[in-house]
Simulated scan of single mutants.
Amino acid sequence: MHTALTELLGVEHPLVGFNRSPAVVAAVTNAGGYGVLAASMYTPAELDAQLHWIDQQVAGRPYGVDLLVPEKFAVSDPDDLVASLRAQIPAEHRAFVDALLDEYEVPVPATAAPEDETSDEIAAAINPAGAEALLDVAFSHPISMVANALGPPPADLVERAHAAGIVVASLVGARKHAERQLAAGVDILVAQGTEAGGHTGTVATTVLTPEVVAIAGDRPVLAAGGIATGDQMAAALALGAAGVWCGSVWLSSEEDITPRAVKEKFLAAGSSDTLRSRTITGKPARQLRSAWHDAWDRPGAPDPLPLPLQPMLVGGMWERVHAASAEGHPGATALDTYFIGQVVGGFSALRPAGDIAREMVSDCTRRLRALGELASS
């Protein structure tokens, strides 16, 4: 398949695979698609190590990175960012999270530190200054695209990327967002419908994609949300997209680093078992419903904090929950969750990411040919 996306990125298939796991990124790229690493999940040092590994695995084939750079950021003391942010977290919220851990009897790891410094560093990086440190690392590797998932990218990010010959992509959840992204000079628009996992709006993919295509001009539009099969990929192309951006489907891959206990919950879930919630990142993000969300819905529960305060509040807690859940602790397993789209209802087994990518492309090709025969009959 040849589209505006495959020509721009120099790939064989118009399939973009977004994931925080370097092995998934490499597998998608090596299958002829385009892997994108969720860079904001790492500290600068961790990101450098992960990108070195990807470089070795893909042997010059193209891949990219994705960052979270919000337009608004809560900070009062730029000289001591982490301390300033932590000071803004109310005691009420700390007490709520601590009480929830006690209620579900989640054990404290023997190696637990008073504060989760790694989570602090990652959360603090979700701002223009922190993102710049990650960009410095990313631009030291042979990436060919950088994507921003939270609003228009800063002008200096676009200028820096273009000066280095790097394509800029941005995710949008509404036509008005796409208009702002086009004005910012992005090269690729990702029309992400509400079905998607992670940060998402309220407009469905089948409605949003043609709206964005209509105003994008010669810039490629990728459809995202509700796409995990070749048939769904073909539907996106039929809507005018130049390709697809897939994230949730890789959570059913063997290479994905999501804890096995959470993956088991994915395999047992239906498409209606997800919800959009601010309780992990501070912004609406689709994830698998669990006892965690039920607790925040109780009368008297505090409102989630804005980004990045909410992830700083709960970051260390999630490491504790994940660790206990992996050991089979029932309370931790009940709380455990992760970002996932409505396609979770189609998960039946864990498979290699490369196999998933190749099957999607093969099934998409077959569906497009069948549609072509239908049109000519």
Rank of each mutant, 00 (worst) to 15 (best):
D273Q: 11
K263G: 05
T279E: 07
S271M: 06
Q342N: 05
G226C: 07
P306N: 13
G341D: 04
D231S: 13
I257F: 15
A238K: 09
W292F: 15
I280N: 06
I280L: 15
G247S: 11
G345I: 07
R320K: 14
G345N: 10
T274M: 07
A326H: 08
D231P: 00
A238N: 11
S325P: 05
V221E: 03
Y338C: 05
R276C: 13
G328H: 11
L350S: 06
E264K: 14
H293A: 02
T333I: 03
T258D: 08
V249F: 13
Q287L: 15
G225W: 02
S272I: 09
P330F: 14
E255Q: 12
Q342T: 14
R289V: 08
F347E: 01
G217T: 02
S252P: 00
W250D: 02
M233F: 15
V221W: 03
D256S: 14
Y338A: 12
P302Y: 04
H322N: 13
G315D: 01
R289A: 12
R298T: 10
G328P: 13
D294H: 12
W245R: 08
T258R: 04
A216P: 02
A334E: 14
R286H: 12
P220S: 05
I340Q: 13
D355K: 14
T279W: 01
A235K: 03
S325T: 08
L267D: 11
A269F: 13
P311N: 10
I280K: 08
A357V: 10
L267C: 14
A332H: 05
S348K: 14
S248K: 01
M233V: 08
E254C: 14
A357D: 08
L275Q: 12
L313E: 02
V344N: 00
G217A: 05
A301W: 03
L305Y: 06
W296V: 01
A235T: 08
R351M: 11
P259T: 03
F266G: 00
G315W: 06
Q310Y: 02
A301F: 11
G346P: 02
R260G: 06
T229K: 08
A353K: 06
G328F: 13
V343Q: 09
A224D: 11
A234T: 07
L305F: 12
P308C: 11
A261L: 12
I257S: 15
A223Q: 04
A224W: 02
T258K: 04
R351H: 15
I227A: 05
A236S: 11
L313P: 04
I356S: 00
D294Q: 11
S271D: 12
G217R: 09
S272R: 14
G243S: 15
D355V: 08
E254S: 13
M312N: 04
R351T: 12
R278A: 12
L335R: 06
G282R: 00
A324I: 05
L237Q: 01
L239V: 09
P302H: 06
A291N: 03
P330L: 10
P352S: 13
Q232C: 09
R276T: 12
A216W: 01
S253G: 07
K263H: 15
R219V: 00
G230K: 01
P302N: 09
S325R: 04
A216E: 02
A326L: 02
L307D: 01
A234I: 00
P311I: 03
P311E: 10
K283F: 10
